[in-house]
């Protein structure tokens, strides 16, 4: 049942590094993270890797396997042939710290820039009433485990370092959408989505949805609806006129 697999693992830091070859035992039912751990325990005790729950729930072990952003713990070895060489590198959108560990502070910075949930000021704890159908959309987005694979794959920042200042990335645009759709949130987030979080940079090429380990429909259910809400606010003269008339008549 077990065999020796060939791995290439990137070892290095900001100054440079190499794709190091390893041959390592693989047993039935294992995932790539198990193999990385076996490398640590047997051949490379100082191989740096981030991980935590090992069940695809915490989103710590994000890396790129054969060029694709993936969770190490959710990539089963059985998806590869025994002959295949498996290349594991750190995320390539964020600065590398060491080996497979990157500096993901960009994401925490962007998280801070999204205005927090703003409930009605006079609503007391215990008095919140929301219908299931009204919370379901935002609940889907709250499945996010913040693995930042979508942030990693998004070409807006992956291929254009300079866009990092003006673009929040799929994860945090989805957070804006989540709050904008929250039945009790009082803030209008459409202006901010356009002006501060760079929604217009998204060209909906859907890579975020493709890599999402939680299978959240980021593009179809969050980003595009948010774009449409921005259109409601900024680009739709019919809606604009309607609002104007309604305001006048009321």
């Amino acid at each position: 049942m077990s065999y020796d697999a060939r791995f290439k693992v990137w070892r290095g830091d900001a100054a440079g590094g190499v794709l190091q070859d390893y041959t390592v035992e693989v047993n039935e039912g294992e995932v790539v993270l198990d193999i990385i751990h076996r490398l640590q325990a047997t051949q490379a005790p100082d191989l740096a890797v981030r991980w935590n729950c090992k069940a695809g729930k915490c989103g710590s072990c994000s890396a790129e396997i054969n060029g694709k952003p993936r969770l190490l713990c959710m990539t089963r070895m059985s998806t590869f042939t025994e002959e295949q060489v498996i290349t594991v590198t750190p995320l390539r959108t964020f600065p590398v710290m060491r080996d497979l560990v990157t500096d993901v502070s960009f994401n925490y910075q962007k998280a801070r820039e999204v205005q927090a949930f703003s409930p009605p000021a006079d609503l007391q704890p215990g008095d919140y009433r929301m219908q299931q159908v009204d919370v379901e959309r935002s609940q889907e987005f709250r499945k996010c485990i913040e693995c930042f694979l979508c942030q990693d794959v998004c070409h807006v920042v992956r291929d254009h370092e300079d866009n990092k200042t003006s673009f929040a990335g799929p994860r945090f645009l989805m957070r804006v959408a989540e709050l904008d759709m929250h039945p009790l949130d009082t803030a209008d987030r459409r202006q901010a989505a356009k002006e501060e979080h760079g929604l217009g940079y998204c060209n909906i090429t859907k890579c975020c949805t493709e890599v999402c380990p939680e299978h959240i429909k980021i593009t179809d259910n969050a980003l595009i609806p948010l774009k449409e809400r921005v259109v409601d606010r900024h680009y739709d003269p019919v809606v604009w006129l309607g609002n104007k008339i309604r305001r006048r008549s009321s």
Binding site: A116, F117, P119, L123, P125, G126, Y128, R129, M130, Q131, Q132, V135, S138, Q139, R142, L179, H182
Partner: peptide, 20 residues
Amino acid sequence: PMRVWELETYGALFDRTPDG
């Protein structure tokens, strides 16, 4: 109970009963 209700004021979205 109060600690759970507080979470809603922080933005938590629990599953709902029919009366919300």
